[in-house]
Amino acid sequence: MIFPGATVRVTNVDDTYYRFEGLVQRVSDGKAAVLFENGNWDKLVTFRLSELEAVK
């Protein structure tokens, strides 16, 4: 189960963010908004829950 605050990895091989890890900001309607941070940039991207896996 994916909840806000969880760290997730993108599993969709066709996505630009494949294998990126980010922090879930919100979850609704089968989608999750994931925040990616890297140095001087932040990006908030929405994914279907089926495209994400929780990082242990």
Results as ranks from 00 to 15, higher is better:
residue 14 D to F: 13
residue 9 R to M: 08
residue 8 V to L: 01
residue 10 V to E: 00
residue 6 A to G: 06
residue 53 E to W: 05
residue 48 R to C: 13
residue 25 Q to M: 15
residue 38 N to P: 08
residue 16 T to Q: 14
residue 53 E to A: 07
residue 44 L to H: 05
residue 6 A to H: 06
residue 16 T to F: 14
residue 47 F to C: 04
residue 19 R to M: 15
residue 16 T to V: 14
residue 8 V to F: 01
residue 33 A to R: 07
residue 47 F to Q: 01
residue 34 V to N: 00
residue 40 N to H: 11
residue 48 R to L: 14
residue 50 S to Y: 09
residue 31 K to G: 06
residue 21 E to N: 05
residue 51 E to G: 03
residue 1 M to H: 12
residue 37 E to P: 10
residue 10 V to K: 01
residue 6 A to K: 05
residue 52 L to C: 02
residue 52 L to D: 00
residue 8 V to S: 00
residue 1 M to T: 11
residue 42 D to L: 15
residue 10 V to F: 01
residue 53 E to G: 04
residue 54 A to T: 10
residue 3 F to Q: 10
residue 46 T to W: 15
residue 48 R to E: 13
residue 44 L to K: 04
residue 20 F to K: 12
residue 36 F to R: 00
residue 29 D to M: 08
residue 3 F to E: 09
residue 30 G to Y: 05
residue 24 V to N: 00
residue 54 A to S: 08
residue 55 V to T: 07
residue 50 S to V: 08
residue 7 T to A: 08
residue 38 N to V: 13
residue 31 K to P: 00
residue 33 A to K: 07
residue 15 D to V: 07
residue 29 D to I: 05
residue 21 E to Q: 10
residue 32 A to N: 01
residue 56 K to G: 12
residue 29 D to S: 07
residue 43 K to M: 13
residue 5 G to S: 04
residue 16 T to G: 07
residue 33 A to C: 13
residue 32 A to H: 01
residue 49 L to E: 05
residue 36 F to M: 06
residue 17 Y to G: 02
residue 3 F to Y: 12
residue 55 V to R: 04
residue 16 T to P: 15
residue 7 T to S: 07
residue 37 E to A: 14
residue 39 G to L: 09
residue 16 T to I: 14
residue 24 V to W: 01
residue 3 F to T: 10
residue 27 V to H: 01
residue 13 V to Q: 11
residue 18 Y to L: 02
residue 22 G to A: 03
residue 41 W to E: 12
residue 52 L to Q: 00
residue 10 V to S: 02
residue 14 D to I: 08
residue 2 I to E: 01
residue 30 G to Q: 05
residue 6 A to Y: 08
residue 46 T to E: 14
residue 49 L to W: 05
residue 13 V to K: 13
residue 2 I to C: 05
residue 33 A to S: 12
residue 40 N to S: 12
residue 24 V to A: 03
residue 26 R to Y: 15
residue 28 S to D: 10
residue 8 V to Q: 00
residue 3 F to H: 10
residue 24 V to I: 04
residue 8 V to D: 00
residue 52 L to E: 01
residue 36 F to K: 00
residue 43 K to I: 14
residue 56 K to E: 13
residue 10 V to H: 01
residue 54 A to V: 15
residue 50 S to R: 05
residue 56 K to M: 13
residue 33 A to D: 15
residue 22 G to V: 03
residue 50 S to D: 14
residue 39 G to E: 09
residue 36 F to P: 00
residue 35 L to K: 08
residue 45 V to C: 09
residue 6 A to V: 14
residue 30 G to N: 07
residue 17 Y to P: 01
residue 14 D to K: 12
residue 45 V to S: 03
residue 29 D to T: 05
residue 13 V to M: 09
residue 28 S to A: 12
residue 40 N to K: 12
residue 34 V to T: 01
residue 10 V to R: 01
residue 25 Q to V: 15
residue 14 D to C: 13
residue 52 L to V: 05
residue 25 Q to C: 14
